[in-house]
Design a protein around this nucleic acid. Structure first.
Length: 453
RNA sequence: UCCUCGGUAGCUCAAGCGGCAGAGCGGGUGACUGUUAAUCACCAUGUUGGCGGUUCAAGUCCGCCCCGAGGAGCCA
């Protein structure tokens, strides 16, 4: 079998080449007298390869079966194109139609479709320019996350998908049962899908030093918004000996690393979004790469918001001790600073039990990173490493200490200061592609009331 | 879960007060052309989301349901 070249390789040839094999899906065909132009795409890059088919090589009635959406394998010569829109084209010697696509029924047109329509045909939308680009960027970003951590001596760990208790202390969990049996028949206790790998990651960092998990996470919250999915992907690093400031430094560095390298390595795809989806995208990405993130304490944020309330007239009045509302976050990251904003040192009463109590005894060493357009993309904290304080927290929040004995062991034997955060991967993709609905960054999204494909 | 808006041809949308359901794109056929969102001509396309109600008459008004979008809460 001949080697199959991907279109990305072919378009980077520095000289012509004979007898090249390419495969792909037809985007469009234009017939001329005596020959036809066919553009195919194979997903390796945004660009199509133009095939020139002489009707002497393939009779016209055969050529007419090459319709939009059909799949083909072609062998031919790569030669410089006289046309202005492409450097190389293929003069086809032999062409085989692998699978036809009835043009009366194939749902994808050459023209633009709405995101809502494409979501209904999620199994086919990958064949459009926009969704191909989103998934290529998603792939690249995932790889860059691994590269970032691996270069910094982190170990990639696999935390459980099936868990016995939830991490946040509350929240809606999916329960795991053996089909047709009692709730706890299999594990002899209730079992759930993970909402975070943090607690087990903490255990592993107390031995491996620096670790990260990167995997699917599940939340059964009935929240129907463009930013929530029932199944999403989260990056969760956990670092021994890191304090909150080092935690924030790492998160900022990670976001800058992924954004800058996607801009470099997927420049064609980013250009597509900048041209056709959001003119301000590249500029916004560059700002994130070049400018330091704004860092403000929660108390400062409340101060700024209270001041701004006179003009903005927020629906929820900012008040120390209350969580920041969506309108507050948007004001800070989009209007006031127009930059990524890190808010840290939150009141302890609105944060979970494992966050480290600050010396003021009122706040904890927590931090959130807010991105313009997307909102909260990172949530993290320095963890409470003091055994007594942690026990008190668990008791005060009415949780069962029996469930956390192993977690408390980490504070009993060689406890160290440590920190970590969770980064919503799909939300980062939203930011990178200026996609406004998380359902469009996940190939087959799961949301309340929707479980297709 | 709550609030708001929407559902009409394959797609994107139009159809003042209830009165014969339309356009562009896409598709088909033909012409022309190293074309490239090709161009030109002609042709076809409908259970107006579903069920029920009001009416001589419902895409349009009323009720219930389904689906989608935006906003809110919660969060990543």
């Amino acid at each position: 079998m001949d080697q199959i070249y991907v279109i990305k390789e072919v378009l980077n040839f520095y000289e012509g080449k004979q007898g090249v094999v390419v495969c792909g899906w037809v985007r469009t065909r234009r017939d001329s007298k005596g020959f036809s132009f066919v553009e195919i795409n194979d997903g390796s890059c945004l660009k199509n390869l133009q095939l020139v088919i002489d009707h002497g090589t393939l009779p016209l009635d055969e050529v007419k079966r090459i319709t939009t959406g059909a799949s083909i394998r072609a062998i031919g010569d790569i030669v410089p194109s006289p046309g202005k829109k492409q450097k190389w084209e293929m003069h086809v010697r032999k062409l085989e139609i692998l699978g036809e696509a009835d043009p009366n029924k194939y749902p994808l047109q050459k023209k633009r479709h709405s995101d809502e329509f494409l979501r209904k045909i999620a199994h086919l939308r990958v064949r459009t320019n926009k969704y191909g680009a989103i998934y290529r960027i998603r792939s690249r970003a995932a790889f860059l996350i691994h590269r970032f951590f691996q270069q910094r001596h982190f170990s990639y760990i696999h935390t459980p998908i099936i868990t016995s208790s939830d991490c946040e202390g509350a929240g809606d969990l999916f329960q795991v049962i053996k089909r047709g049996e009692e709730l706890d028949s299999f594990f002899k206790r209730p079992a759930f899908l993970t909402v975070s790998g943090q607690l087990t990651a903490e255990a592993l960092c107390m031995g491996l030093g620096k670790v990260y998990t990167f995997g699917p996470t599940f939340r059964a919250e009935d929240s129907n918004t463009p930013r929530h999915a029932a199944e999403f992907w989260m990056v969760e690093p956990e670092m021994a000996f890191y304090d909150l400031e080092q935690d924030i430094d790492l998160a900022e560095e990670l976001i800058k690393y992924v954004v800058s390298n996607v801009v470099k390595e997927n420049s064609e795809d980013i250009e597509l979004f900048t041209r056709f989806v959001d003119k301000g995208l590249l500029e916004r990405l560059n700002r994130v790469i070049e400018e330091p993130f704004v860092r403000i304490e929660y108390s400062e944020a409340i101060f700024i918001l209270k001041h701004a309330d006179k003009k903005e007239n927020f629906i929820f009045k900012p008040e120390w001790g209350e969580d920041l509302q969506t309108e507050h976050e948007r004001y800070l990251s989009e209007k006031h600073f127009n930059l990524p904003v890190v808010v840290y040192n939150y009141p302890k009463d609105i944060k979970p039990f494992y966050m480290r109590l600050n010396d003021d005894e009122k706040t904890v060493a927590a931090m959130d990173i807010l991105l313009p357009q997307v909102g909260e993309v990172v949530g993290g904290s320095q963890r409470e490493e003091r055994y007594d304080v942690l026990v008190r927290n668990i008791e005060q929040m009415g949780m069962d200490i029996e469930d956390y004995l192993w977690y408390l062991d980490l504070r009993k034997y060689g406890s160290v200061p440590h920190s970590g955060f969770g980064l919503g991967f799909d939300r980062l993709i939203m930011f990178l592609c200026s996609v406004h609905n998380i359902r469009d960054t996940i190939p087959f999204p799961r949301t309340p009331g929707t479980l297709n494909f």
